[in-house]
Simulated assay, not measured.
Amino acid sequence: MSFSPQSRVWIYQSNRKFSSVEQAEILKKLEAFTNQWKAHGNELLAKAEIRYGYFIILTVDERQANVTGCSIDSSVRLIKEIEQEYHVDLFNRFNIAYKVNDDVVVNGKEDFETLVNIKQVTTDTIVFNNMVQTLEELNTKWEIPFKNSWHSTVFAHLL
């Protein structure tokens, strides 16, 4: 199934890594959801995935049908259910994900700020820009060096 580069994406970042068992269970839930996801009765061409054990990514190709407020609400309800069932935080925008070697690490804003301050996070550290909105942006602007990200403007005073 081929998705347009302009497909919309939503990224939900967990505050902890899902176990492989949890990932399998969550993917089943997500698949069941995306297979029946509709907008005003029209089926949405959608897929879900988990990347790095931390990120739930929903993708909808709007060439088939446009996403509506109601359909977005239904996806948010599902994500909230997953959040409660697995005792994770998927909506905290102050949790910041970055890479150390090839491992993903998630820290709260204060801890991240400290790491920037003590140069454990540098301008070249890869950070995750969960604000991307399209599949094309996911592929090109999601994993980017700190210096090219919104993070660098928020933490500029520390650089």
Rank of each mutant, 00 (worst) to 15 (best):
N129L: 06
V21T: 12
E31S: 11
K99R: 14
R63K: 15
E110M: 14
I126N: 05
R63Q: 13
K28H: 06
E110S: 14
S149Y: 06
V116E: 02
L78C: 05
I126E: 02
F55C: 03
N139K: 14
R93H: 13
I144T: 09
R8T: 09
W150K: 12
N117E: 14
F3Q: 07
S149T: 10
I57A: 05
L58M: 12
F155E: 07
G41N: 08
I50F: 01
I72R: 08
I56E: 03
S2I: 10
Q133I: 07
I56F: 00
K119C: 07
L30A: 11
E81G: 05
A32N: 12
P5C: 13
L90E: 07
H87G: 10
R16T: 10
T140H: 13
T153M: 11
F94E: 15
F33W: 06
D73G: 05
K99V: 04
K28N: 14
A48W: 01
H157V: 03
V121P: 00
K80L: 14
V88D: 06
D103W: 00
N117Q: 15
I26K: 05
Y52G: 02
E83N: 09
D124C: 06
F18C: 08
N35W: 00
N117I: 09
Q6R: 12
T140S: 15
A24G: 02
Q23C: 12
Q13Y: 01
Y12D: 04
F155W: 13
P5I: 14
L45C: 00
D103V: 04
K38F: 02
P5N: 13
M131K: 13
S7F: 04
F3L: 15
Q36R: 12
E81M: 11
K28M: 07
V76A: 11
N117V: 00
Y52C: 08
D73V: 04
E137R: 07
N92Y: 06
G69F: 09
L159Q: 11
L78H: 04
S2F: 08
Y98W: 12
Q23M: 12
S152W: 03
V132K: 03
S4M: 03
N129A: 13
L158P: 00
F146S: 03
K147W: 01
S4R: 09
S2W: 02
S75M: 13
A39F: 04
I11C: 01
N107T: 13
E113G: 11
E81I: 05
N15M: 09
E83T: 11
V121G: 04
L30F: 05
K17N: 05
V104I: 15
I11R: 04
L158F: 11
